[in-house]
Structure formats: C-alpha cells, structure tokens
Nucleic acid binder design. Structure first.
Lengths: 232, 232
DNA sequence: CTGAAAGCGCTTACAG
DNA sequence: CTGAAAGCGCTTACAG
C-alpha cells in the first residue's frame, strides 16, 4: 500500500518514467517538471522501493562484510570494531548499506557468501580476515565477484586479490627486538589462532627476531588462543 | 546472465510457476516433477534472485540491527559483541540475514532506519540500545513497523514496545550493597553516557544503595564516559 | 524534454 | 497436479 512511482506520476500528471528520471535527477528533465514531481513526492510521502530498484538496476548499494565466525573471536579483538567503524563511516557517506555475515563455522560462512553473491544481495564483499585453507576467496575469484581482503592472501597468486594489509611480520619482529634490546631473553609470545595468516606473520616475526639474536625459540614460551568451542 | 527460473523451466519442460512451486516445496507438485525440476536446477546451477523474490513477496528475510553510533562506543563495550553474536546465531538458523546500521550520529541513524523501513530493506528491526529523547522508536511505532528493543524504553508507555531487558537498577544496587557490606564507604561509580537508559538505571541503583546505607552520594565519586568526539 | 512499453526475476491467485 | 497471466515497483532503451 506504500506510495509508488505511479501514484506520484498521477499526482504530478506525468509518466512514471519521468518520475524515475526525476529521482535520478536526469538532466533531460526540465526544472519545471522536476519541481512539480518533487512536490508530488513530498505531498504523498514517496520513498523508493529498494528491492524493485535493485532488481531493475542489478545493483544493491550494499556491501557484504564477512567476519571470522561472528563475534566469537571477532569482537573480542579490538581490531574488528575499529575496522568496522571505518567501513561504516565510508559506507554511510557513499550511501551504501552493510550486510553482515552470521555464520559460526567456515562452512556456514562459505554458504552465506554464496547466498549473498548468487542472491544478488550485495555488490561487493569485504573480507575482514585471511586464513589458511580459506574457501571463500577461491570462490569469489572463480565467480569474478568484486571483493577486498583486509589482511594478506595466503596461498593465492599476487594480482588475483586486492588487499589492504599492514606488515605484521615486521611489527612483531620490531616489538621483539625492542625487548631484546632491553636485555630480555626469555620472551613469551601470546598469539591468536594459527589458522589466521596474521597470527602466522606475527609468530614468524617473533621467531626471526629471536633467531637473529641467537636466542633459541622455545614452544614453552608460546601460547596460542584457540577458538572457543560452542558453549565452552 | 545468471540462470533464472525460466531457464530451469525450459530445461525441465514445465512452466516457470511450477519451478517456483518446487522451490517453495509446495505440496501440490508431484514428487516426480519436483525431482525433474531439482535436477534441472542442479545442472544449470540455479540460484534464486533474492531481490526479485523480495519484491514479489514483500519480505526480505533480513533483520536490521541498529547500534549506537557504530562501534565508536558500541564495540568497546563487550555487551554488543555478545548480543550480536546471539542474534547472528539465531538469524543464521532461521535463514535470516543481518543488515547493519552505519550512522555515526543520532540523526544519521534515524535517517538510516527510515531508509531501511521505507525502502523495504528489512522485515524487522533490532534496537540494541535505549536512550533518552530517542527518535527512532517513536518513528517505528508510528509506522507500525515491527521491532524489538534490547533495553528498557524510557518515555514510552508500556505495551507499545516489545523489549528484552535485565534489571540494571538492581544489578548496580546489589554490587554497591556488596561493597558496603565489606565495610567500604567511599565507593566510586564509573558509568557510561547518561543519555543511555542503562547508565541511568545503573546510577540510580548505585545511589539507592548508598542512600539506604545513609552514605552521602557525592558527584566527586562519579565519572561518566562521554562520547568520544570524532578524531578525539 | 517526455511517454509508452518492455524488462528485471520472482510469486500467486485463477483456471482447468 | 500444472499452466498462463498478472503483478511486485522500479529503470531504460526506443520513439517522437
């Protein structure tokens, strides 16, 4: 029962196509007509149906966000809130909406990504993590679906993936070197799940710094955060 | 160029409407036909266009999530990750997707909610916070749009709002009483922004406990987390 | 500068 | 049990 483009057209005494063009602010419509149509839209309280638009347009103005099994790990880590905040701001400015993955396992997440892509729910995807044996990226690449990875692709050839990363190897190495500089030798490493590339990079940087300083690397000083099991 | 219901229909030698019914698993279609159609879907790699479905159906299978200015406060607070995780799990199970608000200010958020509602982007909304002088709930109520509030409505009459809350007044009171029981008298209160109902309830509980114990309430012992200004 | 018509890919009465 | 047709609310060539 919502107000449609037809109602507006009738009210402004123009064709629906004209209303559509006014909405798109087409330069081919006279200012006079535009004003009349806009007035009618106001009076009627018109708002476009986004699903109809998406269908006709084949574009959704929505971005898909894929996180590692929702919140379980994701939100414990201050990185994700921060990155989502940045994404939100820009998305808002550009008039894009955000569609969130909800899967709890790798399989669920893959299924959801397929759903987003095949269903035409989103125009592009933001992958907020990179992991070994990832299924999602290969799927996206195969589909030729636009996406950006935050992190570093692992097994995938350069040029296949657009990504944004920071040098986690170097960061961890620098931190470790600093501790060594302070004279410490028994330096611990508390890392994330080793399935994530970021964790691997951190660990390698840590190990490299130790090795360079001729300090033996010992598993006894290394702890990894395992994924919490459901209900655990 | 994606495979449509028509392609499947042709392949299975049935009408598009039949394919649609097979997808919906209508009991009015013979098992034989169902199998033939399903086979055709497999072979062709058919996946429904969700926008078309939403348009025809007037339903999106998507829930809107509205958070206090994205992540800025939201994700610092472990409450939100946890609640989003719960929402995600259930949403996934029920085949619902999640659409996230991205606004940074109250005005932006309201605008977004209108966008979701008018645009037909979501079937219902989950409000993850309750604040004084809130604009969002009145709008939703006026529109008769389904939503659930997490928290307690402030200025709104009972029965107008479906909400899930815990007794923050009592919780804060109990905590304070415990400290009093231990013999403390100079008890500090570190609270959130006073625009949020939860903060108000906490503070009232704290104050009540003090008052009951004849301990004077002093502003000197109270600190409130103000919203961080952009770039601050 | 504007309109009539077809199309986007589904669903759902209405018939039979 | 199945099909033809209309409809959901937009957009966009094609004409004029």
């Amino acid at each position: 029962m919502a107000v449609t483009i037809k109602d507006v057209a009738k009210r402004a005494d123009v064709a629906p196509s004209t209303v559509s063009r006014v909405i798109a602010n087409s330069s081919r419509i006279s200012e006079k007509t535009k004003e009349r149509v806009r007035e009618a839209m106001k009076e009627l309280g018109y708002h476009p149906n986004l699903n109809a638009r998406s269908l006709a347009n084949k574009s959704t103005n929505t971005l898909g966000i894929v996180m590692p099994n929702t919140a379980k790990i994701a939100f414990q880590n201050p990185f994700f809130p921060e990155v989502i905040r940045g994404i939100s701001m820009k998305a808002y400015q550009e008039g894009y909406g955000l569609y969130l993955s909800t899967g709890q396992t790798e399989e669920e997440i893959l299924e959801e990504v397929k759903h987003m892509v095949y269903g035409g729910r989103v125009d592009g995807i933001l992958l907020l993590y990179s992991r070994v044996d990832d299924q999602v990226m290969p799927f996206l690449i195969e589909q030729g679906f636009p996406f950006v990875l935050i992190g570093r692709p692992n097994d995938i050839e350069e040029g296949q993936v657009t990504y944004v990363n920071n040098d986690n190897f170097k960061a961890a190495k620098t931190v470790t070197e600093y501790l060594i500089l302070l004279g410490h030798e028994r330096i611990g490493f508390i890392g994330g799940n080793l399935d994530y590339v970021v964790t691997i990079d951190h660990m390698k940087g840590y190990e490299q710094a130790l090795t360079n300083a001729n300090i033996p690397v010992s598993k006894d000083y290394m702890v990894h955060h395992e994924e919490v099991k459901e209900g655990g």
